[in-house]
Design a protein around this nucleic acid. Sequence first.
DNA 1: CAGAATACCTGCGGGC
DNA 2: TGCCCGCAGGTATTCT
Length: 279
Amino acid sequence: MPELPEVETTLRGIAPYIQHQIITDVIVRKHQLRWPIPTNIKQLLVGQSILDLQRRGKYLLLQTEQHIVIIHLGMSGVLRIFTSEPPKADKHDHVDILFNNNTILRFTDPRRFGALLLMHKNSEHTLLKNLGVEPLSKNFNAKYLWSKARNKKVSIKSFLMNHHIVTGIGNIYATEALFAAKIDPTIPAKSLTFIQIKVLVKHIKKILQKAIKRGGTTLKDFLNSNGKPGYFSNHLKVYGREGLPCVICNTTIQTKKIGQRTTAYCKRCQANGRQKVKG
DNA sequence: CAGAATACCTGCGGGC
DNA sequence: TGCCCGCAGGTATTCT
């Protein structure tokens, strides 16, 4: 999906339109997303106002007086804002939330891996309670990642994509961060030196921040709340570059499946000191 | 318990 | 043109 920068872009895009606004209607055309949208969502939300909007990992949280709306964009989800009559809903426009300022928030998701759930304001949702640290927070630092990596035999790439360790990093940004840090994505998490962990943390933060600044990455589906794509795609250095020359050393970029996910890497830059390539 | 495989769903591009 | 296959930004759940 949308990974952290895309969710953050979405949050910033929709917040000015719906914060402090009262929900006047909820139209659900398709309940069956990753989990069913609660059937009583309309009666629970109408009349409530949006007090606050937050992001936790890749989850968007819309806080109302009584409930918190949890939204996950899955692989192909998009939230868009309409301030006048929206276009006729097509088959993937699953939900419209209407507000008293005539704004409409529309949730579109062709693959339906996304979710729209409700939790009571005082409860703790199982989806959220076991999430790891936010990668852009101070809690995400070399000491933390190092301590978590101590006994982990999984590849460093799968480790980075484990949301119980650190949230919001998906295939694109894990791939990019490992390239920037010159770390072989296949090596076990526990085999990294503290210095490597430190460099990796630095690059993760840097890349995520840069991507947010560019409005996220659009490969195919992602659009911001105005329906515009993100522009970080132009800054990707390895992801999607299989067969093309490495931007650093010209070696042909290869791919490999790690934990079922395609991983692009430079054999030379990310050799992790195992062997020097001639030349 | 950790780690790997599976499941959910649609759309698209490539090969034939 | 059309069919079939594999692949895609995610992650909870089930398996070994």
